[in-house]
Amino acid sequence: MPVRRGHVAPQNTFLDTIIRKFEGQSRKFIIANARVENCAVIYCNDGFCELCGYSRAEVMQRPCTCDFLHGPRTQRRAAAQIAQALLGAEERKVEIAFYRKDGSCFLCLVDVVPVKNEDGAVIMFILNFEVVMEKDMVGSPAHDTNHRGPPTSWLAPGRAKTFRLKLPALLALTARESSVRSGGAGGAGAPGAVVVDVDLTPAAPSSESLALDEVTAMDNHVAGLGPAEERRALVGPGSPPRSAPGQLPSPRAHSLNPDASGSSCSLARTRSRESCASVRRASSADDIEAMRAGVLPPPPRHASTGAMHPLRSGLLNSTSDSDLVRYRTISKIPQITLNFVDLKGDPFLASPTSDREIIAPKIKERTHNVTEKVTQVLSLGADVLPEYKLQAPRIHRWTILHYSPFKAVWDWLILLLVIYTAVFTPYSAAFLLKETEEGPPATECGYACQPLAVVDLIVDIMFIVDILINFRTTYVNANEEVVSHPGRIAVHYFKGWFLIDMVAAIPFDLLI
């Protein structure tokens, strides 16, 4: 008679799926529990143990900040960024110097990925580790590398530091407007667009060049630039800015003055950032001319202004700041037409079709709590990747769950009947059967004279019903998954307890 339990259901295979997918890609990662103190490590794979030199037993239950890997060259700011990422709910990448158990130093890129439950609360953290440099290539500990984003994938490793954006290309926007319009339909740009040429040739750093990471940081200074100062900065030398009595002219307006920039070969870094931020506020060169004239017309309804409409929906549905990093990277690809469009465009503009998908598509409701890094690593669709929660398995109709209350009560009843059979069957065979043979035949009273025979008949009927119930009862397979398919249940029961239950259900007393 089957006594099969499996009270692990309803099970959740999400954690096993993450481990299996990460292991298949030869990654070095740990999984931490966000619900406990210090976000203790609950799993670390073999790749991480080989990377740091510690065994799994030495890593388990330690804080996922990996303070046991810190050393003299470990930056405090990087460690603080990892700790801050564990307090938030967004994906974050941090470069930090770690030390192995043998004392060797290596520069590592740590990717902190939160995993949320159905309520939107962070319950786990996945920390992925990628070695960037070994100890002989690690720089000085005073050099802070965590304020910069990861290198873009479309640049060669040897040319990542030679990417320079020439400031004269930004200063000569109005001069290039006529050349853009003359391109017409034969050019790649839309009317009114501004073409910015980027020099990728390796050259020595000069005062006129600005690194790509500095251009990325310009967006942080746009908020500090007032509207009046932006307007004066875009007017140009024809209309000098008016300053109040006793007030000095704005240095932001002076930063885009061609006369002032041409007199000296070098520009201050602050002026460069502010000038680029001011130019980015204009949607095209037409807006710059309109600002000089004193009238700013409404933005025209053409394809170039609607190019950012799908980007707005993608940004609203993005799951991490990696989408913004990807957008900034692609927006700086050289030799393309940049349409400086305000994100607050007309909502009635139709979304044009684009061959290049900048932001990841909208994630469906079932995966809105899973970050983009987890979705990318697992390579699963929205119909396959579940949320991290207890999910009731989908069972067929008329199927009994093996952990249901009805099955528990039924098993206790069958257990009592088995005990009765084990006690009274030998007793009936030894004593009652002998008395029946010696006594007179009682054929007239039937079952009324033999109450134990009636009980034995009921017990046999219950055993037959138990066999039928076992054909529709779920079970737990070797992978700790609840199986509810009727065919698989029948095959599993035939290979197991079916023969024993059938022999126990045969009414031998009635056959004798």
Results as ranks from 00 to 15, higher is better:
320 S>E: 07
282 A>S: 11
71 G>S: 01
174 T>N: 05
310 P>S: 13
24 G>K: 12
300 P>F: 01
380 L>R: 04
13 T>P: 08
335 Q>P: 14
156 A>G: 15
361 P>G: 09
89 A>S: 14
206 S>Y: 05
376 Q>E: 12
105 C>D: 10
317 N>K: 03
344 K>Q: 14
342 D>E: 07
21 K>Q: 12
334 P>I: 01
140 S>L: 10
333 I>R: 15
281 R>D: 14
242 R>A: 10
253 A>L: 14
46 D>S: 06
247 Q>I: 09
377 V>Q: 01
35 R>F: 15
42 I>Q: 01
123 I>W: 11
57 A>W: 07
307 A>V: 11
369 N>F: 12
67 D>L: 07
358 I>V: 14
53 G>V: 01
7 H>L: 15
35 R>I: 08
365 E>Q: 13
14 F>N: 05
160 A>W: 15
311 L>C: 05
221 H>T: 10
342 D>F: 01
8 V>H: 13
305 T>W: 07
187 G>V: 08
295 V>C: 15
42 I>H: 01
313 S>C: 14
259 D>P: 05
104 S>K: 08
61 Q>T: 09
165 L>S: 14
112 V>M: 06
103 G>D: 06
87 L>E: 14
366 R>M: 15
336 I>S: 15
355 D>V: 14
125 F>I: 05
367 T>A: 13
268 A>P: 09
114 P>V: 01
379 S>K: 05
181 R>A: 14
56 R>D: 01
213 D>R: 15
354 S>Q: 14
172 A>W: 04
94 V>W: 01
163 F>I: 06
38 N>A: 14
298 P>V: 08
223 A>W: 05
370 V>E: 03
79 A>F: 03
212 L>K: 06
97 A>H: 15
349 L>K: 14
267 L>G: 11
70 H>D: 01
201 T>Q: 09
334 P>G: 08
74 T>Q: 01
224 G>W: 06
224 G>H: 09
280 R>F: 15
322 S>A: 09
302 H>N: 11
33 N>Y: 03
187 G>H: 06
309 H>R: 09
332 K>D: 14
230 E>V: 05
204 A>G: 06
74 T>C: 01
274 E>D: 15
260 A>F: 08
384 V>G: 04
126 I>G: 07
34 A>R: 14
114 P>G: 02
124 M>G: 03
226 G>P: 07
344 K>T: 07
121 A>F: 13
244 A>Q: 14
293 A>F: 15
219 D>H: 11
43 Y>Q: 01
70 H>R: 03
218 M>T: 04
192 G>P: 05
131 V>K: 08
385 L>Q: 07
210 L>C: 05
176 R>I: 01
292 R>I: 12
263 S>H: 06
152 T>P: 11
73 R>D: 08
25 Q>D: 06
209 S>K: 05
128 N>P: 01
113 V>G: 07
94 V>R: 01
339 N>D: 15
44 C>S: 04
295 V>H: 08
343 L>I: 10
262 G>H: 15
263 S>M: 04
197 D>F: 04
238 G>S: 08
123 I>E: 09
323 D>P: 09
174 T>R: 14
222 V>Q: 06
381 G>L: 04
161 K>D: 11
34 A>V: 08
240 P>C: 07
39 C>Q: 13
43 Y>M: 01
202 P>M: 01
40 A>H: 05
20 R>V: 05
10 P>H: 10
333 I>F: 03
93 K>A: 13
321 D>A: 14
350 A>E: 07
263 S>D: 07
255 S>L: 14
368 H>V: 10
88 G>P: 01
261 S>M: 10
136 D>L: 05
152 T>K: 06
263 S>I: 04
159 R>T: 11
159 R>H: 08
207 S>F: 06
93 K>G: 09
102 D>W: 01
39 C>N: 15
210 L>M: 15
192 G>Y: 03
76 R>W: 05
222 V>R: 05
11 Q>N: 15
110 V>H: 01
72 P>E: 07
346 D>P: 14
314 G>N: 14
85 A>K: 01
10 P>C: 10
213 D>E: 06
71 G>A: 01
384 V>F: 09
36 V>D: 04
120 G>D: 14
89 A>I: 08
160 A>E: 15
252 R>W: 05
285 A>Q: 05
300 P>S: 07
313 S>Y: 12
268 A>N: 14
230 E>S: 12
223 A>Y: 03
176 R>W: 03
298 P>A: 06
170 L>C: 15
5 R>G: 11
225 L>S: 01
280 R>E: 10
297 P>L: 09
192 G>Q: 12
301 R>Q: 07
85 A>Y: 01
173 L>P: 15
73 R>H: 05
249 P>V: 15
171 L>P: 13
317 N>E: 14
83 A>D: 10
301 R>Y: 09
165 L>T: 14
308 M>Y: 12
300 P>G: 07
201 T>S: 15
190 A>M: 11
381 G>S: 07
213 D>K: 14
149 G>D: 10
218 M>R: 13
15 L>Y: 07
4 R>T: 09
368 H>Y: 14
97 A>V: 14
289 E>V: 12
55 S>K: 13
24 G>F: 09
248 L>V: 12
335 Q>D: 11
106 F>L: 01
302 H>D: 11
10 P>G: 13
212 L>M: 05
351 S>Q: 15
360 A>L: 12
320 S>Q: 11
9 A>Y: 15
377 V>Y: 03
147 H>Q: 03
335 Q>H: 13
373 K>L: 07
141 P>K: 15
171 L>R: 15
138 V>A: 15
246 G>I: 15
258 P>W: 05
361 P>E: 07
32 A>E: 01
366 R>N: 07
11 Q>G: 15
43 Y>A: 01
90 E>A: 14
81 Q>P: 01
50 E>V: 07
363 I>H: 15
119 D>K: 13
249 P>G: 05
230 E>R: 08
214 E>T: 15
370 V>W: 11
216 T>H: 06
255 S>D: 05
256 L>Q: 06
302 H>Y: 07
297 P>V: 10
311 L>N: 15
278 S>E: 11
160 A>S: 10
170 L>I: 11
228 A>M: 06
251 P>K: 13
352 P>C: 07
10 P>N: 12
135 K>V: 07
289 E>Q: 06
279 V>R: 07
313 S>L: 07
374 V>Y: 13
358 I>G: 05
101 K>Y: 01
187 G>L: 06
265 C>Q: 08
222 V>C: 09
291 M>K: 08
28 K>H: 11
2 P>T: 06
85 A>C: 04
206 S>M: 13
249 P>W: 09
376 Q>V: 08
197 D>N: 08
367 T>R: 12
102 D>Y: 01
12 N>K: 12
202 P>F: 01
227 P>S: 15
17 T>P: 11
350 A>W: 06
206 S>L: 09
370 V>S: 01
340 F>E: 15
243 S>W: 04
354 S>T: 15
292 R>S: 05
350 A>R: 12
93 K>W: 12
44 C>I: 01
161 K>F: 04
261 S>Y: 09
338 L>M: 15
282 A>C: 08
329 T>D: 11
62 R>Q: 13
15 L>A: 07
119 D>T: 09
296 L>T: 04
260 A>R: 11
284 S>C: 01
54 Y>R: 01
144 D>N: 15
315 L>M: 08
332 K>Y: 04
181 R>E: 06
87 L>N: 13
334 P>Q: 07
304 S>G: 08
61 Q>G: 14
126 I>A: 11
13 T>I: 06
201 T>A: 10
151 P>T: 08
362 K>F: 08
42 I>Y: 01
314 G>L: 07
149 G>V: 14
275 S>C: 12
365 E>R: 07
340 F>I: 12
